[in-house]
Design a protein around this nucleic acid. Structure first.
Lengths: 112, 112
DNA sequence: CTGGATCCAATCAGATACTG
DNA sequence: CAGTATCTGATTGGATCCAG
């Protein structure tokens, strides 16, 4: 059973959801983890040219706190940390696909 | 036929799409226009408590420039301006619904 | 290797006052 | 009624250096 949405509550809930994806790098990170991919910190640094260490660490920690990404630390020297999507994080895929589909429908005349 | 997406191009396209929805008030505005609703500037001002005139005008103009909202001016005194969604703007609804559905699936334990 | 801490620039958002 | 202009504070993102 879905919640009963008003314009306001729906907007708030979508806003909360979008807030989890905001930040210039989060989507890039997520797309590099979709499909069960597992990446190390240094992998993501390599896969996302231009990202600073601060931003990578910060966005990863937010994604982790929000429950989209899980972090696995191997207590060894040198340190090794793996990132992967949680089940819920994977479940974001269809929603992003719907957004992608919408973006494709954009009339050329208005695009800019 | 869908585009062939890589992690990077998909992320970029979704990012562009999300960028159209960013801003603290845009979703509120959109939800007050969904379903073919037509609102005047002052209607939106009333429907969205706390928004300043500057922000309302600014976000409306961005939504218009991005092709989600259309603006109709009645050249009369006092002035009258109506806002409604474009066809493409209306088409955003299913995508936001998918996002809402995803948000509902969030595990309680991780929510915060 | 995996980050944390700090400083700085750019952007965003709010309050207020003013205009056709 | 439907905005615009200006000033100001908050938030975000980036560069660099430091540490376990």
């Amino acid at each position: 059973m879905r919640k009963a949405y008003t314009a306001v509550t729906a907007a708030e809930d979508v806003e909360k959801a979008l807030h989890l994806l905001e930040g210039r790098w989060k989507l890039l990170i997520l797309f590099h983890l979709f499909g069960g991919q597992v990446q190390r910190y240094s992998d993501l640094e390599r896969l996302i040219p231009g990202i600073s260490q601060k931003m990578l660490a910060q966005q990863l920690r937010q994604l982790e706190a929000d429950g989209l990404v899980s972090r696995k630390v191997y207590p060894q020297t040198p340190p090794k940390v793996e990132y992967r999507l949680t089940e819920w994080g994977q479940a974001l895929c269809p929603a992003l696909d719907a957004l992608l589909y919408w973006a494709e429908q954009r009339p050329e005349a208005d695009a800019g």
